[in-house]
Amino acid sequence: MSAGPTDHSRSLIPALAIASLLAVFLACSLGETPMALGKVLASLFGGGDATSQTIVWSIRLPRALAAWIVGASLGLSGAAMQGLLRNPLAEPGVLGVSVTASLGAVIAIYYGFSASFAPALQIGAVVGALSATALIAFAAQRVRDMVGLILIGVGLSSLAGALLSLLMNLAPNPFTLNDMVSWLMGSVANRSLSDIALSGPIIALGALVLLMTRRGLSALTLGEEAAHGLGLDLTRTRVLVAVGCGLATGGSVALAGAIGFVGIVTPHLVRPLVGSDPGRALVPSALAGGVLLVLADVGARLVPSDNELKLGVVAALVGAPIFLWIAARRSAQGKAQ
């Protein structure tokens, strides 16, 4: 029996892991202050002069790591969500967790918490993400099918979106509004290792939960009825994916704001290499998402502009054409299903 696409996936995961390291290393060496590769390497391992140490450890490395973590988390969540909903258009935000996390952060800005206590913004986003996750997990146990879950997600998204608009509408002054808009565009600029320490564990927990659903997502390829017959506990799978995506996506929003397209595009990029089995796409999607966002952030930093280019904007600018290309190729191949 042929091993099919498994061969690719075996070499793909180590390849993507190496690409991740290279991308982070590249991000550490590029920037306004040019640094030789040797110097970057020395600084990473505790050598080099104090200036290089500061540039690498306080500015570039945290930023690159944050971009990788967010990209990986969104790639993984997107792959899991597409698998659970059996829909190539599903993305991590489909259940409303991203918007609710954004709402939490905007509340922190609106009431001035974040002005007096910087981590309040992240904490607000985490609280928003966790509340939305709890609500979705509760709903996942009660709905009859996935459509019911999507409808609740759409409702939650709309409600959180409306409240978010309300807060922006009522923003006390232009500076607050500017803070909100700027944060919503998504960025990993000026992130510190302690920011990562706050959101990282939540994202890691979410990722672990998602990886547990790997085989279940494969079984869902044949539909919910058949998956039940195969011995899959549908309710458990729904709850795990909802909780995993909620934690991973919510943590990402807390760390970097709203960043679109990575979650929806990455699984499509890895599918030609690992095959269409949604379970097998999880780990490669995570790694590829990380690489993609680190590179997008390098791009955001290197493009000369008066204002800081936001990562969320660059990710969408890169992601949307890729998405269109995938869509065009898909229809060129005729009906995929």
Binding site: S2, G4, P5, R86, N87, L220, T221, L222, G223, E225, A226, G275, S276, D277, P278, A336, Q337
Partner: peptide, 9 residues
């Protein structure tokens, strides 16, 4: 009903 969501082998 036997839907197949993804083009698996």
């Amino acid at each position: 009903s036997r839907p197949v969501a993804w083009p698996i082998a």
